[in-house]
Amino acid sequence: MNAKSGRRRVQAVLKRVPMTLFLLLGIILVFSLLTGPAKYLKLSNVMNVINQCASGVGILALGSFLAICSTGVDLSLGGIASLSGMLTAKLLSWAPAPIGPALLLVLAIFVALAAGAVMGSLNGLILSRTNIPSFIITLGVSKICETLSRVIAGGTTIRVNGHAAFEFIGSGSLLSVQQTTMKGARVITRSIGILPVSVLIMLALYVLFSLLMRRTPFGTYVYAIGGNYEAAELSGIDTTRTRFRVFLLGGLLAAVTGIIMTSRLTAASAANGLGMEFDGIAAAVVGGAAMTGGRSTPWRTFIGALTISVLRNGFSMIEMLPAMQMIAIGLVLIIVVAIDAARNRR
């Protein structure tokens, strides 16, 4: 009796483990065989992947997930990330600054988030009140963001120097380990952060959004809109407000990505975030989101985002040409969405 119910519980747990996780493990296995496990699975590379995820597709993918879950799509996320990152850099490199560095940092982050909120609201205002296809409006907003960041940049890369507090966001770590490696006769000691601040921010956001989607009416409404729009409307859900919030949150998440990106690179160029929105879509769909809406969860999206980061990192590890990487990512995007479409047809 007890053993039986125990086995059932194990089965239930196994059932809840998303298939994507096995896909991720499979990809890791392939790459570690291709590059040598010792080189691929060493701590610095593992942390590198996770850091890249946090400053890249990781947080932004949440925005993609939200939009897709409510049957839309948000192509402006990359543009917003780029604009917010650029605003942060521009404000922090304000010299001579009329206010102290701490205040300046707060101001920069505030302005970057506000820019994300404004652009997200622009998407939301239009898309929640009309039934224009979301890709076209968000594409337009993306171009506006791109232009603004180009104009702010003025054709150069904006560098942020000597802002320790700011750099801490993207490169700092709460806990580090010392690792010594032998390179020929020399002994090199490196410290590797194992609790990077950016990763903690990302995880915190995932916890927050997981709560938001599972425990609040808003989350239920987003799923309901994706599952059956008519039913949501007939149940008295304010679909306009819900869809507006989806795009507003997307803009904010993209802005956070932009800030972390600039902090990690200590510089911002107008091309930084371009194309990231498609990585976000790929991550969400790999995680199990259906383009028809209403599927997947934040944590599954997280696995999707990790998968994309692992792929990008792995392609570099096996020294694939950047151009070949473009081709490979394009193929991944098409294959993933094609599988999703085939799944929905049944």
């Binding site: 239920t220 799923y223 599952g227 039913a231 007939l234 008295g236 209403g294 599927r295």
Partner: peptide, 30 residues
């Protein structure tokens, strides 16, 4: 009760029954 089904298939039975009228705690959680 409409003839066509007006349920969100991806939500649970309980979520569907109280869709749009979820009981909430004071913190705003369901």
């Amino acid at each position: 009760i409409f003839q066509e089904f007006n349920l969100a298939p991806n939500l649970t039975v309980a979520q569907n029954i109280y869709l749009g009228r979820e009981p909430c705690t004071r913190a705003g959680f369901i």
